[in-house]
Design a protein around this nucleic acid. Structure first.
Lengths: 224, 224, 224, 224
DNA sequence: AATGAATGAGCTTTCATTCAT
DNA sequence: AATGAATGAAAGCTCATTCAT
């Protein structure tokens, strides 16, 4: 094509006057710091947009606009649109696991831990309102990332259940049957997520939901 | 809900969008008959393509090509691309519910019925290989249709559980707690679908998976 | 990306007010006729632009603008940008060969024919002012088309020279040496083209240039 | 280029894989010396890349990468991308002329010299494998440089032929007709280059090609 | 002088939708 | 009612050039 000869002008027009709340990376000190901040701004913007509008509408134009940088800048930090989409779930997923793990660890028995972990998942959803959609749509838009995430969660859960089985808190389930249980419990959180993420409501998950879930799990597992 | 278009839509017989011997619409007699056949061909084509490649890649070009009609013809039968995508799940979902209901009804006790229904879901998946993906990606691509479907299934399930509660087969759960249970059971099927749809394999879901699931449900519900 | 939902508007804004002299395809009768005219308009536009600015600047935007159609229309007629670029030389090359052949045939002897062909090449350049650049830049931008063209011309030329050799008009050259001669004569036209295409001048090639060329060829070949 | 998230690795040594003994500019002593070496590295890199991939793909990124300097450094040494491209042919062209002149000078008669020069051109092609492409694509990508080069060569050639005409070795051509001859001979080398640069082969041009060429020239010129 | 990230214009291509036939 | 070409907005991505460090 015609050689692009025009001289790039400074970013005069300040970014999208609308929703941009970009914690300004322009204040940065070192170049590395600045670069890091921009990368983070892009990442945050992508997470927000996917959380709000879905992967589908997370266009580069949108993401960079919200991050307050030029479109080209995106490609200094990520290889492609798919690249950043693929990184969303792993990054947030790790945070989620860490949070849930930390919550769960405060319990003593299996069921205490399960309840705390369950509650932890929903408190994470409240502090990370984008996570739910990022996770939910991942199978369609970031399948590999989703599989990896699933595997990670599954491993953790299986480990957790195996220990409980060894200690006798779970009875009547073979090893491979525990995997089935794992899937059921994992999926449950996803569907019950609707109790928590009702359109930006910042409410906690109702207590009776937790109770009902725990009841099901407790009897389902210990009486097996 | 998506606006159904002006074309006379017979919601009556949409079933099995797949294996029908595709009665060529060119053989049609009357105008109306011909029109109906084209509409069905488009619907079937859309279902197949979404099942195979996902909503994302279900372009009008592709759908009309597979249906064997011109692109413009599409808009004589559906309002928009989104319109047909929104109709996919409701139509197939009804079939699914009918099938699962029929299976379930053969059982006598709650748990017999639940097992039969559970198995019925997976046998439906085998006869309708597109359904799983259509259902799975619906939250991202046909959110309203998905909500409607969920509502429908929830209603059915709740009805089912309520009856069991009345008859004493379920104990220890309040009415609204049954909703939580409903969500857990609904979601479980979706995740356990992985055991059934491994790469187009036409295998039945393994028996031990069913057993594990039933164990969890039986104890979870009756001991509550 | 976000589904493109906006309704396409009619092409109200008449095309580029500048250089478009498009013989209006809107007057067309049948659909096929219309389609053909558009394709031709695109082709002509591409040829003109390549002739004027080179392959490099022959962007789809430019081509469609000059042809007076929307950008998308391009892809109804050509597979890709490269596709149309690849078709430029073959199409014009054939015309050129036909014209040169027709001119040449009027001569009786080898040298008469060669002179007539030589003159014919330059008269073609005058009636097809874009051909020179299309041909010249083809090695860089449409290498396959260029090779094919070269081969075609080479074949024709070789055939021509072989006959002259059989009839004794050329002496002292082996078969494969004739190939060398062919290349020399072919390349000569390209360089001597500068005498003809001096910046849009519509002047004929100076007679003394023809004379000098013929002298070189005549003695070079007959005295070999 | 998209920053791969790994640590910023210095672009240590990507330069000239080809012929250059690449005197690393990092060894340089004085400021000026260092600057000169960088400029040369850039120049060499550009020549190589154009020779290998063509002007089109000679991006600043690529050139600076191969030269082992940062992108910005480029603009301390050249005004623009076009600037360096415009300098490629003049620089190499001079080398070529010098080499061909040196070869040619060893001959006594016009035709001896012409043959030696002709052979010299092709031996230059062998030692400077990038030159052919740089020259060939120059009309498209560095037209001014190309015209200048052509002018230079033409001057030299004309001078050469004029002398031969004075000495009677060429007869029957007027002064301005010699220009035509010049163009023919110049262009011939370009097309006959195909015999020499078959796919990176390092073979000499076949002897029979030289013979055929010389035959054509000798008779063409002396019998004129 | 060297760096390399930021910039944004500009590219090719896709595709839902329209509409003259 | 069926057709299928025309439409044009919008997408992802590239890269010459600038400039703060």
């Amino acid at each position: 094509m015609a050689t692009r000869n025009s001289a790039p002008k400074k970013n005069t027009a300040e970014q999208s006057p609308l929703e941009t709340a970009s914690p300004d990376w322009r204040d940065a000190g070192s170049r590395d710091e600045r670069s890091r901040l921009i990368r983070e701004a892009l990442f945050r913007a992508a997470a927000e947009i996917v959380g709000e509008k879905g992967y589908q509408d997370a266009s580069i134009t949108f993401i960079t606009q919200r991050a307050g940088v030029a479109q080209g800048t995106f490609y200094n930090h990520f290889e492609s649109r798919q690249d950043i989409l693929d990184q969303l779930l792993p990054a947030l997923g790790e945070d989620m696991l860490a949070h849930v793990g930390a919550c769960s660890n405060k319990g003593k028995t299996l069921f205490e831990r399960e309840e705390l972990g369950f509650r932890g998942f929903f408190s994470f959803l409240r502090t990370h309102p984008h996570f739910f959609r990022i996770l939910n749509e991942a199978p369609s838009f970031a399948p590999k990332a989703y599989e990896a995430h699933l595997e990670l969660v599954r491993e953790g859960y299986m480990h957790f259940l195996r220990k409980a089985r060894s200690s006798g808190e779970i009875s009547g389930y073979s090893e491979r049957e525990l995997e089935v249980v794992t899937y059921v419990l994992m999926s449950a959180r996803l569907y019950l997520g609707r109790y928590a993420s009702q359109d930006g409501s910042n409410d906690e998950i109702p207590d009776w939901v937790v109770k009902a879930y725990c009841k099901l799990v407790r009897h389902g597992l210990s009486g097996g």
